[in-house]
Simulated scan of single mutants.
Amino acid sequence: MNDVSLRLTGITKSYNAGTAAAVDVLRGVDVSLTKGEVVALVAPSGAGKSTLLHIAGLLDTPDAGTVEIGGTDVTGAPDRRRTLVRRDEVGFVYQFHHLLPEFSAQENIVLPQLAAGVARRDADARAKELLGIVGIAARADHRPAALSGGEQQRVAFCRALANRPSVLLADEPTGNLDPATSDTVFDALMTLVRETGLSALIATHNMELAAKMDRQLRLDQGVLSPA
């Protein structure tokens, strides 16, 4: 049985900044996440953490190296296959919630499930279950504008996990919140992750939050190492 949800091997990525020499953003990055593991990705601004997350989530392709999700190499998979893997196996959370303003909290969580072919009744039940886990079930019928920043981000977490992915990728998920709200929202995220048993790679500048995770990795000058 393969307990590795995500494995990146020898990932390199460079960008050519106009006429300047290519910038090596990632240089031979290796990382594996086992099922149920929560890993902090700590990096200074501009170090390439977003690039690494995008490659891990099949939103970008590496110059070299392989990306395996659930034990399957999907590095060079056709676009249709990559889209399906992203939909079914990967959840994304960003610093800003990006909720659809015209829909309620529950509807924002239902929609990605409907896109994946889930029946409406089951999608509603899943949305209510997730909102209950993060403690805002009573806000299910409210639109994003009627929710606080912390509530909006908790809905975004629920949306990311709606289709039961095996991997969660989060890029500064509490970076837009005040410290007290950040702690509350992060605790909700950890509860979701533990309840669902998926693997998570969470980029953060907050070392206190990073210390709450199973282990910490530092990305600096394109090289990934234990923090």
Rank of each mutant, 00 (worst) to 15 (best):
residue 44 P to N: 12
residue 122 D to Q: 15
residue 72 T to P: 00
residue 77 A to N: 03
residue 207 M to V: 12
residue 186 F to I: 03
residue 154 R to N: 08
residue 206 N to C: 05
residue 194 R to W: 00
residue 203 A to R: 02
residue 12 T to E: 14
residue 175 G to C: 06
residue 52 L to D: 01
residue 183 D to A: 15
residue 212 K to G: 03
residue 174 T to G: 09
residue 27 R to C: 07
residue 219 L to F: 09
residue 164 R to H: 14
residue 116 A to M: 05
residue 138 A to N: 13
residue 9 T to W: 12
residue 172 E to D: 08
residue 123 A to H: 10
residue 176 N to Y: 01
residue 21 A to W: 03
residue 120 R to E: 14
residue 96 F to S: 15
residue 154 R to I: 07
residue 169 L to K: 10
residue 164 R to Q: 14
residue 128 K to I: 14
residue 126 R to G: 04
residue 37 E to G: 04
residue 154 R to H: 08
residue 163 N to D: 05
residue 224 L to I: 10
residue 137 A to I: 12
residue 108 N to P: 07
residue 224 L to Y: 12
residue 117 G to F: 03
residue 172 E to C: 01
residue 135 G to M: 03
residue 114 L to W: 04
residue 189 L to T: 02
residue 225 S to Q: 13
residue 27 R to P: 00
residue 5 S to E: 15
residue 29 V to S: 02
residue 171 D to K: 03
residue 164 R to D: 13
residue 148 S to H: 09
residue 137 A to Y: 04
residue 199 S to F: 01
residue 76 G to H: 14
residue 211 A to W: 01
residue 166 S to F: 01
residue 39 V to I: 15
residue 203 A to F: 04
residue 67 V to L: 02
residue 91 G to V: 04
residue 65 G to Y: 06
residue 192 L to M: 08
residue 22 A to S: 14
residue 52 L to H: 03
residue 8 L to Y: 00
residue 6 L to M: 07
residue 175 G to W: 03
residue 217 L to Y: 09
residue 131 L to P: 05
residue 201 L to D: 01
residue 78 P to V: 01
residue 198 L to W: 04
residue 156 A to E: 12
residue 52 L to S: 02
residue 100 L to D: 06
residue 191 T to K: 12
residue 157 F to G: 10
residue 36 G to H: 07
residue 62 P to T: 03
residue 128 K to R: 15
residue 147 L to M: 13
residue 190 M to G: 04
residue 1 M to H: 07
residue 139 R to S: 15
residue 44 P to L: 08
residue 111 L to S: 02
residue 226 P to Y: 11
residue 223 V to F: 07
